[in-house]
């Protein structure tokens, strides 16, 4: 029965998103024009990618607050690399970005795994370190659009079947993470390790190593997002994506992922990210100042966790014989 509620939770969130779009469309029909919907999805692509990584980490009962700093640092390095070596092809740059991000994620993961440090403290620390490193490598300078190669900027804007590459990358990441979580042993281990660490040990799993892998995935995706972000906004500087980690966690919470680990789906995470994306794009359309966005997302986070809290008080153990058992 609870499984149905969880399933219908995703459905409810999807319905809310659709209802929101339709409601806006009654006043501004162009909002649900296919082109605009694709633009909104593409706009949410970076968030979706980060949310997929965060999903893996949160499933294992950890949290990665360093993703936005990772994104910014990787983005700056890739931007500088492009400026210095405009001939490196974009796919190689994207790969390098992922690898560098993976390294940063592995650093978080190693501290959690090998030293048993709490993930929240480690990633609060690396949030600051990675952000500061941007200044160290760039000297505070900006990488501007005119310094970037046309291929660097153009690659994600090309359209394939009418959809920009930026969005295709997001779709691919969702598919890959869905595959990992559903079809690989390590993906299933995220659920077991986060759901019941003791039982995971009894089942012969290494909790710390599993968490390490989740951090690596989160880091690699943040690195990839770093390239996408810089290419999309055509600028790299110290402050990009500052505070974006809270949007990522917010999307996860809205998507029904339990911060206590072990519960969460790709669908939920995706819907959570799309919800924030639609809200962000809808505000200017309906004439609400974009200054409302932050407060709204905060409000929605709290609403979502309260709804997810279900019955906080434990219902007690089943000691009395149930009717089925009482029958002779």
């Amino acid at each position: 029965m609870l499984a149905r509620i969880v399933a219908s939770r995703d459905l409810m969130l999807a319905l809310i998103i659709v209802a929101m779009c339709l409601l806006i469309a009654t006043r501004f029909p162009q909002f649900i024009a296919p082109g605009n919907l694709i633009a909104i999805a593409a706009d949410s692509s970076v968030l979706i990618i980060l949310v997929m990584g965060q999903l893996c980490v949160i499933l294992t009962r950890c949290i990665d607050l360093s993703v936005a700093s990772n994104l910014a640092l990787t983005g700056m390095l890739i931007g500088m690399l492009n400026t210095a070596q405009p001939d490196i092809p974009v796919p190689v740059l994207a790969l390098l970005a992922s690898l560098f991000g993976l390294m940063l994620g592995a650093f978080n993961g190693a501290l959690v795994w090998l030293l048993g440090l709490p993930a929240i403290v480690v990633t609060l620390g690396t949030l600051a370190i990675y952000r500061g490193m941007i200044y160290v490598v760039s000297g505070g300078a900006w990488v501007n659009a005119h310094e970037m190669s046309p291929a660097f900027l153009g690659a994600i804007r090309q359209e394939v079947f009418g959809v920009p590459v930026l969005l295709w990358v997001g779709v691919a990441v969702v598919a890959i993470v869905a595959f990992i979580l559903r079809r690989t042993a390590i993906g299933r281990a995220f659920y077991t390790v986060g759901g019941n660490p003791t039982a995971a040990v009894y089942a012969g799993l290494n909790v710390g190593r599993t968490q390490f892998v989740a951090f690596c995935i989160s880091g690699a995706l943040a690195g990839l997002a770093g390239y996408l972000w810089v290419a999309r906004y055509a600028v790299a500087y110290v402050e990009i994506a500052r505070g974006f980690e809270f949007d990522v966690v917010a999307a996860c919470v809205i998507g029904g992922i339990s911060i206590m680990g072990g519960i969460g789906t790709v669908t939920g995470a995706l819907l959570g990210a799309l919800f924030l994306g639609v809200v962000k794009n809808a505000l200017p359309v309906i004439g609400i100042s974009p200054f409302w966005q932050l407060a709204l997302s905060g409000f929605v986070i709290i609403l979502a966790v309260v709804i997810n809290a279900r019955s906080a008080r434990s219902r007690g153990r089943q000691i009395l014989p149930t009717q089925r058992e009482a029958a002779p």
Partner: peptide
């Protein structure tokens, strides 16, 4: 030492 949130099949085969 089982996993409450997972299915019966997965509980049997976890690990």
């Amino acid at each position: 030492v089982l996993f409450n949130e997972l299915t019966v099949a997965e509980n049997i085969f976890a690990g």
